[in-house]
Design a protein around this nucleic acid. Structure first.
Length: 603
RNA sequence: GGGGGUGUAGUUCAGUCGGUUAGAACGCCGGCCUGUCAAGCCGGAGGUCGCGGGUUCGAGCCCCGUCGCUCCCGCCA
């Protein structure tokens, strides 16, 4: 079963040569006389000609060929007759004059056409082995491969060791729900699949490996989205004796190499930076897309005395943990042309994020000439109108959207509205890929449901040196804890977080204090994190790292909507696999061996 | 857990106000055809309208339930 090369390699330099190719019938054009076959392999297409005069035997055979039959073809590489070259094909100047043909396998009629756009995802996933034959999927997975190899090579050259960590590990509190694996030999006990290799990579630093990386599969049993799968891949790395700057510089080098080798583009460095506070203030979200020119303006100060009660109330509302009130405005240049219907749709949109309404002003002319069209403008004094005009820089023809509520609601609703307007009004400008680092995240957040603090990044993230004092002294007083920032950083690409990391806590006392703040008592910490706390007491070096979401990164670089299109065998939104029918019921015997009984009976 | 969208031929879709035999394109099958590459021309086959129930003289269409797929909220350190 020899072949001389791949389809796409057949070019003019092989003219006159005998070649042998293997591949699939991409299409067949039977003229009764001459028959053309486009033969396809993962590299591309080449045209094979069956000529009844030159090779009557082979020509007769070729009548029976159908799409997706698997062939081995031998023949001479010949120049196509003038006028019949195909400039759309890389191999379009030549063709193979078939001299022998072997049908290695036949194929049934396909459940969908491989060259058709817009085929439903359900059928694509059910026949994923056919879907993956399509050029787009071949391109996606080959691109993903290129990214992974670039990462491996770059990190290897930077002195990183690739170390594997367990897939069967222990369940820990905090974070997402675990996928559990019952232990046959330990009745009633379970492993958990890792949500990330976080603790293991810290142990590797403590073990002195200095620089670790892994392209690691991670598992989280949570509800899915277009950019979330139950199992996903992280480019996970950790370094010893470093500070934030070192990790970020290293990460920029990796991304730069990916740009160069996978995309053939040059990444402009350094990547700009924003603090979390700046990002929230200006964009309302912690993952802003800087290609979008819109931004939020804080009006809280100038609205404290306003006669518009909704605004005044929000502007004067005190509180901690994002509960304090706020008035912000989003200026849409030229937005006065939006229709009432469109504005209603945006009002409905911000409702998703808890906004009770969406106040607006259309600037059809100067306010002095009654040029402001709005249900609320009558409540504002001249001074307030002037304050709105000057702080937003609004001009005639603009539209202003207002948010007045708790800070968390104002920021999220206007922040999301900014993103939606950017898309709807096609405002994005600049380079196609826009990176930004977001730094100085808060260390802790308050979870109202469980009435306790939770780690914004994770429980092993170090606080910023400057804020360390507040953490030590404040006890459980929330107004102080809110102000503590962490040495954490996220890398954002086009408005999506594609990576994040932090400097970790290497002081066992601080780590215990941190767990206590999260409501994990000494006893529970001892039980769940004993190995980490102990390890920290045996010469743990300062260390930190970061993880990239490989699926998201590849999806954005390729411009595809869903990470399912860059994963060979993804799962559906209900975490099922239409190809293998996983998950499935199992033989009761298997359950018995595992000491399990389920409450769900097979129908 | 909640909200939106969707399900009709192998595929992508249309299907009017509830009314005769559910259509189109592509694909598939057969025939013709010697330079196509979205080949062309002629002919043909192909339907559990997701599933179950209800309303009605009559349901692809209306109602109830259910399942799948999808987008979002919650959730995802």
């Amino acid at each position: 079963m020899k072949r001389s090369g791949y389809c796409n390699e057949i070019r003019e330099h092989l003219l006159g040569e005998q070649v042998t190719l293997c591949g699939w019938v991409n299409s067949r054009r039977d003229h009764g006389g001459v028959i053309f076959i486009d033969l396809r392999d993962r590299t591309g297409l080449v045209q094979v000609v069956f000529n009844p005069e030159r090779q009557p035997q082979v020509h007769r055979q070729a009548h029976g060929l159908r799409n997706e039959y698997v062939l081995r073809v031998c023949g001479a590489v010949v120049r196509r007759p003038a006028e019949t070259a195909n400039p759309k094909l890389a191999t379009g100047q030549i063709e193979i004059l078939a001299e022998s043909l072997e049908v290695l396998n036949t194929a049934q009629q396909l459940p969908f056409q491989l060259d058709e756009e817009g085929v439903g995802e359900a059928i694509r996933l059910q026949y994923r082995f056919l879907d993956l034959r399509r050029g787009e999927m071949q391109r996606n997975l080959q691109f993903r491969h290129r990214v992974m190899q670039t990462v491996r090579r770059t990190l290897d050259e930077a002195g990183f060791l690739e170390v594997e960590t367990p897939m069967l590990t222990r369940s820990t509190p905090e974070g997402a729900r675990d996928y559990l694996v019952p232990s046959r030999v330990n009745p009633g006990q379970f492993y958990a699949l890792p949500q990330s290799p976080q603790l293991f990579k810290q142990l590797l630093m403590i073990a002195g490996y200095d620089r670790y990386f892994q392209i690691a599969r991670c598992f989280r049993d949570e509800d899915l989205r277009a950019d979330r799968q139950p199992e996903f891949t992280q480019i996970d790395l950790e370094m010893s004796f470093v500070q934030c700057e070192d990790v970020m510089a290293l990460a920029e080098g990796v991304i730069g190499a990916v740009f160069r080798e996978a995309l053939g583009a040059e990444l402009s460095l350094p990547i700009p930076r924003l603090t979390y506070a700046e990002a929230m203030d200006r964009y309302g979200l912690d993952a802003p897309d800087l290609r979008n020119p819109l931004h939020l303006v804080d009006l809280t100060e100038s609205m404290r005395q306003t006669g518009f009660k909704v605004f005044a109330q929000a502007a004067n509302q005190a509180g901690s943990r994002g509960q304090h009130g706020m008035v912000k405005v989003l200026r849409v240049p030229g937005g006065a042309q939006l229709t009432r219907k469109q504005i209603d749709e945006y009002t409905e949109f911000v409702g998703i994020y808890g906004a009770k309404g969406l106040a607006w002003i259309k600037l059809n002319g100067p306010w002095q000439e009654d040029g402001w069209q709005s249900p609320i403008v009558k409540f504002f004094s001249d001074a307030e109108k002037e304050a709105i005009r000057t702080t937003t820089g609004a001009e005639v023809g603009d539209l202003l959207f207002f948010g007045a509520d708790r800070a968390s609601i104002v920021n999220e609703s206007l922040g999301r509205l900014r993103v939606k307007l950017g898309k709807d009004l096609q405002l994005l400008q600049g380079a196609p890929f826009s990176f930004v680092w977001v730094t100085e995240f808060p260390l802790l957040d308050w979870d109202n449901e469980s009435r306790r603090h939770v780690a914004v990044h994770h429980p092993f993230t170090a606080p910023m040196q400057e804020d360390r004092e507040q953490l030590d002294q404040s006890g459980m007083e929330e107004q102080f804890l809110d102000k503590v920032r962490s040495q954490a950083y996220d890398l954002v690409l086009n408005g999506t977080e594609i990576g994040g990391g932090s400097i970790r806590i290497h002081d066992p006392k601080l780590q215990e204090r941190m767990l206590a703040l999260l409501g994990i008592g000494a006893e529970e910490a001892e039980e769940k994190f004993d190995f980490l706390l102990k390890a920290l007491e045996y010469g743990a070096p300062p260390h930190g790292g970061l993880a990239f979401g490989l699926d998201r990164l590849v999806a954005i670089l390729l411009g595809v909507e869903s990470i399912r299109d860059v994963i060979a065998f993804p799962k559906t939104q209900k975490a099922g696999c239409p190809l293998t029918q996983a998950p499935s019921f199992v033989d009761p015997l298997q359950l018995r061996e595992l000491h399990l009984r389920t409450t769900q009976v097979q129908k």
